[in-house]
Design a protein around this nucleic acid. Sequence first.
DNA 1: CGAAAATTTGACATGACTCAACTGGAGTGG
DNA 2: CCACTCCAGTTGAGTCATGTCAAATTTTCG
Lengths: 195, 195
Amino acid sequence: MNSVLEKLFAYFDDYLPLGEKEKEDLSKRVTERKIKRRQFLLQEGDTCKYYSFVLEGCFRMYYTDEKGKEHNIQFASEDEWISDIGSLHNQVPSRMSIEAIESSHILQIAREDLWYLYTKHHVIDHNFRVIIEDKFIEMQNRVLQNISSTAYDRYASFLEQYPQLSNRLPNTQIASYLGITPEFLSKIRAEKASL
Amino acid sequence: MNSVLEKLFAYFDDYLPLGEKEKEDLSKRVTERKIKRRQFLLQEGDTCKYYSFVLEGCFRMYYTDEKGKEHNIQFASEDEWISDIGSLHNQVPSRMSIEAIESSHILQIAREDLWYLYTKHHVIDHNFRVIIEDKFIEMQNRVLQNISSTAYDRYASFLEQYPQLSNRLPNTQIASYLGITPEFLSKIRAEKASL
DNA sequence: CGAAAATTTGACATGACTCAACTGGAGTGG
DNA sequence: CCACTCCAGTTGAGTCATGTCAAATTTTCG
């Protein structure tokens, strides 16, 4: 447990580093878990109870539409947080699912503990503000891509922005993230390769 | 100035209400401005210096692509904040522009003042975390719509989600926000009307 | 009122989807 | 080690959603 906590503390060093008090308090409220491939962190209909930090492995959060099609909203790999924030905040059932794409190793903070930490330690509140702001910017860029670029360009940007991730993910998952069908992605790849 | 400050304080009452110290400190660091229709709050290439709170009126933030087409990323009307957070954070030139769609009345906080307030007052940091989290959820839903729904459905959702806004905005602006051409939106509207 | 901008309409072009068939690994069990 | 299945990926034909361009019409605002 100690070494994984160190990894979490080190992560915060890129923001405002945590002091001894915060580290101690945080340590008490963090749970370590191993998740197997294809196992769920959250299932549609359940209320999201945790903010999860990925130590190792990879997850996808997706929405299942009326026709049963799955749409990937987010991936999370090493040093990233994942959760359905809307469900976590308002304690309402989630419309999303979170599934492990690879066997993974995570840390979790339960909602009440997170709230406690936010209230008690300014620096934690602060860091999570900055973290979510960065996520917001990323999401904003994605919207921008979606409304202004063709599928071909969006795929190219994805490869450029997440080169490591794109190696680890099946193309089907990437297609779902980009909002296109796997067949069409395949055609895009064929076209790209022929240049 | 006093009455507009009261409006800002009242806005924060929906989060963690500000205490007297925070109010006083915030008051000193807020600037009031009137912006005419079609006037810019931020021009592409400039570095964003302010976080702006809309007291009255309406703005759009948009990106101009290589072909000169404008893509609306965000609207902001009463009781909403607008800024290119990426540019504001990292003090880099913005790729976006922010333009007043209506003649407007706003409050602005300069970057250094905002940083000061974040650091000094936990409650302000906290509130802005919650505010941006809500924005993040909104943006996430928008991505979801973009990757999973047809233009017809996205337009219907927009009308449902922002009924008041949709009355105030020209359809061209809505089309740009939805990521479709004004011509196609017009056809969608015709189809909708004929039901 | 008059100019400029927004909206509508139609013909045609293209991006992206559907469905179905085929290919080629990656297990699994004999 | 082979035969089998299973799933991801590819390919192609036909279709639907959306874009382009141009012209006509209406609305808005100065």
